[in-house]
Amino acid sequence: MSKTRWGVVFVAAIAVAGLATAVSATEHEQWPVPGYKSVQPQEGNPLPELISGYWFRTAEVRALQDDDFENPGFLWVERGEELWNTKDGEANKSCADCHGAAEESMKGVGASYPKWFEPLGKPVNLEQRINICRENNQKAKPWKWESEELLAMTTYIKYQSRGMPMNIDISGPMKEWWERGKKEYYQRRGQLDMSCANCHEGYYGHKIRADTLSQGQINGFPTYRLKWQKIGSLHRRFRGCNKQIRATPNPYGDDEYIALEVYLAWRGMGLPVETPAVRQ
């Protein structure tokens, strides 16, 4: 599994970072950390190399993500597993009743979202797909965005793709949503008049105060954020980013956010899924 693959690098990185901390307490860790890993972008991607947000975080945060027993995101993986096997709705069916073992049936699924959903004539992300299944097949009420249940199920399903490369299909009708997401990505917004690209394409690796800007890759979502003290969805992060630049946040699951998610999934194609990732 991914742990053994990345383990050697982690140990080296932690050792070096630890040394740097010892030398100067005020000087915070500098990016790039020695031994960071990157992935070659596919054609047309404006980034010269794809780097997970993992490598922009401190050695302590990285170590927390790497230890499945310490990683607090696993509380949601476990909760998701319970829900997977719990009967619900008027149909009185569990996810497992139809899909069997998630380790088998959901392997690779999370890595391919958002995906075109013909009945709605638009792409849906994993959270939306889960709720569609609840309504249509379990005859259950959809879970609210950011509810413990929806976070847990999304995390559990995405976790079944951990270590697998992000792999979204932007062919056919998805192309239009990709275009729309790209437009969103480069649109300056808010009183601070910044686009996603301003920070995450132009200045990744640089510091905004104490925080190191990442490429804004989404391969770790849902992600446990130390700042939140819990796991959160990608759309929660979008909303936070919007508010930071004093722009109006969109509602959860909004078309603009889905388009942006499509575009970002494409920008990170090839990066390994890290759910549940840990970030600052």
């Binding site: 649109q187 917004r189 009183q191």
Partner: peptide, 21 residues
């Protein structure tokens, strides 16, 4: 990337409480 610190026009989707300011 630097914001304009004394311009309230030509901006997009500004959070309501900062609009026009």
């Amino acid at each position: 990337i630097m914001p304009a610190f004394f311009r309230s026009t030509g901006l997009h989707d500004v959070l309501e409480k900062f609009r026009g300011k």
